[in-house]
Nucleic acid binder design. Structure first.
Lengths: 109, 109
DNA sequence: TGCATACATAAGCGCTTGCTTATATAATGA
DNA sequence: TCATTATATAAGCAAGCGCTTATGTATGCA
């Protein structure tokens, strides 16, 4: 891997919001509207973070109906390192389980 | 490790110049004036990169005479991850050996 | 004592980042 | 068909980044 590529990938990761997004995605695929709930952030803000992660090749999108489902790209050259980084981080307070309990989890299967 | 701390550490790493500095330091301790030669950069620019890496706790300084000798902080929580990241990067074109050959390597022992 | 060396720090400047608000697009459903 | 939903995109703006030049500080040496 060259320096520029690693720089771009690490810059994409080194943001608290995006680290949270990646932490959630390390457990399950999610869509934008779920992140706006989980992170209590505006939809454009989340969309822009997703774009940055996608440009770095760290996540994949899959359009399904109105939703775009995002997941970690396991084929990224830094996937293993990323996984060990995410493992060092605590579980976020707001969980996907609590979303389900509140009936806010989208069912896009 | 909390999110803010990892964000600060990764932000410090995710810069091409600083990745090069860390790559050199993964082999041996060096001082500022050697980096100005190795990276062909101004002294203040290097000093400011060092300050950023030090604030993130990634490197240690040791004052010896007029020189400040910098080395990797092996006790940093991300040291192992950092080492595996640096291992993925190619050797820089300009080597410390070439500095020695040109008589530009400082001997501060 | 005086000058050179090694380094730190500060101000300034152009560029990037991450949010906001506003708007566009595309799919779904009554 | 028309409103709703999910998402993308654009413009604008404050804050941060990385360099420059200028200057301060401490050490070593003649």
């Amino acid at each position: 891997m060259d320096y520029k590529q690693m720089e771009q990938s690490l810059k994409a990761v080194s943001d608290e919001t995006r680290m949270l997004i990646l932490k959630y995605l390390s457990k399950e695929a999610l869509c934008i509207c779920e992140f706006t709930e989980l992170l209590d952030m505006s939809q454009p803000a989340i969309s822009q973070h997703m774009r940055k992660l996608k440009q770095a090749g760290l996540i994949c999108e899959e359009k399904r109906g109105r939703w775009t489902i995002w997941s970690l790209n396991e084929k990224h050259g830094l996937f293993e390192v990323l996984a060990s980084l995410l493992a060092l981080l605590p579980e976020p307070e707001r969980t996907v389980e609590s979303l389900i309990a509140e009936g806010k989890k989208v069912n896009c299967n």
